[in-house]
């Protein structure tokens, strides 16, 4: 069996034999990523309408459906309408703390069967499996958004307590709710934010960061574009024109 020491020793032996390499450097990283991330947010704040418009254009280009509501209180009505049109009844939603608001009661009042995610871990494997089976049965998944990237029309969603990975993956319809605070312009800015999220003093989070750029798609059969092969066949981004977290 090859050990780490053997493996690295072989690499070093080969590296010593290289001749005439050209000078090359990796990308310069932000020195203080969390401060730089804050600076980016401050810089972006005044021009959020342009960023939002660009996001909408790109998100629609990749097959997403964009909605705009005035306040968080309008979201349950919108979601209920989307569900009704699609004959969907079962909804899984992030935990209220992760979503920034408790929408479960309002959704239930509109006739939906709502399963809100627990705030943290469950006791054992059996409980986790049971919950996952219920997520798998849901037709609509309601989540928040950590970043909305205008350049590419991408929703970035982090996993963690109260925000399981499969809420944006297993249901056929994914509805993601966001406000202006998560808008960024470019992949370069995303790089700074990713550095900040991984800085030693950053708050803890889940193990997975998902970039979602439109609905699940494939062109594997005769190059015919088909939606919803494994993940959702529709992705809706709901922009709330007010701060979700007040």
């Amino acid at each position: 069996m090859t050990t780490q020491a053997d493996f690295l020793a072989r690499i070093r032996t080969e590296m010593r034999k290289t001749r005439g390499l050209f000078a090359a450097a990796t990308a310069p990283r932000p020195a203080a990523p969390r401060a730089e991330a804050e600076a980016i947010r401050r810089e972006l704040a005044p021009r959020w309408p342009e960023t939002l418009e660009r996001f909408r254009r790109e998100f629609e280009r990749v097959g997403g459906v964009f909605h705009r509501v005035a306040a968080l209180g309008d979201v349950p009505h919108l979601v209920a309408g989307l569900a009704r049109e699609r004959e969907a009844r079962r909804v899984v939603a992030w935990h209220a703390a992760a979503l920034g608001a408790d929408l479960a009661a309002a959704l239930t009042a509109r006739g939906l069967d709502v399963l809100a995610m627990p705030a943290g871990e469950l006791g054992d494997e059996a409980e986790r499996r049971a919950l996952r089976a219920r997520i798998a049965e849901a037709e609509l998944g309601l989540t928040g958004v950590d970043l909305a990237v205008a350049e590419t029309g991408t929703l970035v969603v982090r996993s963690g307590a109260g925000r399981p990975r499969s809420t944006s993956l297993l249901p056929s319809y994914h509805v993601a709710v966001f406000d202006r605070s998560v808008l960024v312009e470019s992949l370069r800015q995303v790089g700074v934010l990713l550095e900040a999220w991984h800085a030693p003093d950053a708050p803890p989070a889940g193990a997975v960061t998902s970039f979602i750029t439109g609905p699940s798609r494939t062109a594997d059969i005769e190059l015919t574009l088909t939606r919803g092969v494994h993940g959702p066949k529709e992705v809706h981004a709901v922009f709330v024109n007010a701060d979700i977290r007040g």
């Binding site: 919950l131 996993s159 963690g160 997975v208 970039f211 979602i212 750029t213 798609r217």
Partner: peptide, 22 residues
């Protein structure tokens, strides 16, 4: 020819404390 593929998934080790899945 996409700007990004639909899913770019960044996986950092096994399930974390507080996570239901993974």
């Amino acid at each position: 020819g996409q700007k990004l593929s639909v899913y770019t998934t960044l996986v950092q080790g096994p399930r974390r404390a507080g996570e239901l899945e993974g």
